[in-house]
Amino acid sequence: MDLLLVLLGFICVIVGVFGSFLPVLPGLSSSWVGILLLYLTKAVENNYWVLGITFVLMVIITILDYIIPSKGTKKFGGSSYGVWGTNIGLVVGIFAPIPFGIIIGPFLGALIGELIYDSQNHKRAIKAATGSLLGFIASSFVNFLFAVVYLGIFLSIVWEYRNILF
């Protein structure tokens, strides 16, 4: 049973790393669940400090994940249409068979969203799309950074208890 929990935990942490920049997958929360599954094994001693600190960080970063792109859009003069366009453009960009679709998609999505909001002001739409894209990139980078840290925590715990787990 411990081996199954370790395997499921590892899958969750890997999904969390990919989910940090792919909105169709759960991000940091998935990574935290992976660490929790590791601590649910009988071989690994519970460390409520690690679980608590990683949980609080996950909650804070998840909240910031929603705030940062909208702040980037608002700072550059955009609307909620730009934020929605960024998210839709990201999903389309992931599946579109074009190079750098994951970067081009959010920008074009935000631009189209802003043009739907106000079709007369192209300069403001480009500025808002740039802000939305920068916010998305910053948010994704923070998520990815912490997801990799969670992966490191997971692997270090597995390494520490490798003799008991395997």
Rank of each mutant, 00 (worst) to 15 (best):
M1D: 05
M1Y: 09
M1F: 10
L4E: 06
V6N: 02
V6R: 03
G9C: 10
F10Y: 13
F10G: 15
I11C: 06
C12E: 10
G16I: 14
V17K: 01
F21K: 03
P23V: 09
L25P: 06
P26S: 14
P26E: 09
L28W: 00
S29V: 14
I35Y: 10
L40Q: 12
A43L: 07
A43P: 01
A43R: 06
N46P: 09
N46M: 11
N47P: 05
Y48D: 13
W49G: 06
V50D: 09
L51W: 09
T54V: 08
T54Q: 08
T54P: 08
V56L: 12
V56C: 04
L57Q: 08
V59F: 07
V59Q: 10
I63T: 01
Y66V: 02
I68R: 00
K71L: 07
G72H: 01
K75I: 02
G77Q: 11
G77D: 14
G78W: 07
S80H: 04
S80T: 03
S80F: 01
Y81N: 11
V83N: 00
V83A: 04
T86I: 05
T86M: 07
T86A: 09
I88K: 02
I88T: 11
I88H: 10
G89M: 02
V91H: 00
V92F: 13
I94W: 05
I94A: 07
F95V: 11
F95H: 09
A96V: 14
P99G: 11
F100V: 10
F100E: 03
G101H: 01
I104T: 07
I104C: 02
P106Y: 04
I116V: 15
Y117E: 14
D118R: 11
N121E: 14
H122E: 12
R124K: 15
A125S: 12
L134W: 03
G135Y: 01
F141P: 01
F141H: 04
L145M: 14
F146P: 01
A147H: 13
A147S: 15
V148W: 04
V149W: 00
V149D: 04
G152E: 06
I153V: 15
F154E: 12
L155I: 15
L155G: 09
L155A: 15
S156T: 15
I157K: 09
V158I: 13
W159T: 08
E160G: 05
E160S: 06
E160L: 12
I164D: 10
I164H: 06
I164C: 01
L165C: 03
